[in-house]
Design a binder for these strands. Sequence first.
DNA 1: CTTCCAGATATGTCTAGACAAATCATATCA
DNA 2: TGATATGATTTGTCTAGACATATCTGGAAG
Lengths: 248, 248
Amino acid sequence: MSDIPALTESDAVSAPRYREIHDALRAKIVSGAWPPGFKLPSEPELARSFDCARMTVGKALTALADKGFITRRRRAGTRVNSPRPQESVLEIHDIEAEVRTAGHDYRYRCLTRECRPATASDASALNVPIGTPVLEITGLHCADGRPHALEERLINLQAVPDARRERFSKVSPGGWLLSRIPWTEAEHQISALNANSPMAQRLQITRHKACLCIERRTWHQGQRITYVRLIYPCDHHRLVARFQHGSP
Amino acid sequence: MSDIPALTESDAVSAPRYREIHDALRAKIVSGAWPPGFKLPSEPELARSFDCARMTVGKALTALADKGFITRRRRAGTRVNSPRPQESVLEIHDIEAEVRTAGHDYRYRCLTRECRPATASDASALNVPIGTPVLEITGLHCADGRPHALEERLINLQAVPDARRERFSKVSPGGWLLSRIPWTEAEHQISALNANSPMAQRLQITRHKACLCIERRTWHQGQRITYVRLIYPCDHHRLVARFQHGSP
DNA sequence: CTTCCAGATATGTCTAGACAAATCATATCA
DNA sequence: TGATATGATTTGTCTAGACATATCTGGAAG
């Protein structure tokens, strides 16, 4: 027989001190007792009032700052932030993984491929000077042989010169790039659009059908790597984002 | 004249030690030198090899664990995680704030309002038993008098009984709820759809026009509060998500 | 062979103190 | 008055050590 008592959330083994402090301070903020702009007591004062070392309150404050509740500045002290817009964590999956986990067969097919000096629109999409060598690729992601998503991509050849030698006929440029140059920064824009004729033809859908459009720009160490536009027919895809604030 | 030297990213004032360690370890991981499942050296070993105190490597490891690169377990040690799907932080703004910050005049108008026992579809949207009292509201968010977004909402009256007495004729239920019951958990689904006739009529757009559809489910302490579907004509809205992994 | 207990080891938390760096407030000088 | 030096305050980082807690390993007991 085990002597370990049953644990419920409410009677956890006693949270660590820094979490107690973190939660106490957060309660002051979310309840409105400490409104935006309010200056918190200094670390030494908090340490005295919580009867612990400064490092311990510091740990709690750092966590609150990481979560965006407060801003800390040397000498100026710590202040409560204005509430930020709702944030959700959006998981943007690799298309191949996404298709395969849904239990379908995945295939990629290249439609067009062209190396050229950047036009004005290429330049603005990649944020490079006009004339910089770029590679434009359009391809189709298929699930069980049926078109799943259309990909239109620009690659900055200055950042990824190897791409010039790759045909991308069967291998999707997304995975190829990811394995070569891990991105450090990404920006996504999500919008809706009506399929135009070439899109509709390639995706085998009717013209004007609503599509989800995901544009992604990727950086590596500040340098723009690639710009990609993915077009999903509306019944093929939806994005899910979840957010939890409070407990952790 | 200021003697402060110009700072470029490359010549920052010398990063704190724990960040150097953090970056060094992350480099091992993202480069693949330490593959998923790899067991890292123990804290004391790392402290020796980086010639610093254990707390300093601990800080770096904690940060890496928070970001999902590694998993740490007592006695079992620290291991590299399998790569997670790309994640982006998606900011989902309050519509009113969004319209106003764009410099437009904002107005909300209620279209329909009905209290009823939950039908089967209400029940699945709110995850409550059939027959639970719910409030259904449809309304229109307008910018400068023109339709901006259509809102279809269900409110769980068991969780928010006060809503029964509120007419919501001019005040948007989103803000009303938010000020009353702060959510602790939210899930968003983003998809595209073609406007059907009633949508098109209410939004004053042509039928079949592509719209961005954002569905949101909100919880408070595990209890489902509300389900809302927002329909934006495609040229009215796009979502932006940013993600940076690495530096912070 | 299985079960159980006792180390050994790795992380988790905490402390008290130290110095560094940023910034605010004040006093001083031109 | 206005610019500048000075000091005080607050956060940022780091250390060396301590004890707590979880978990793995191997050996002893049944």
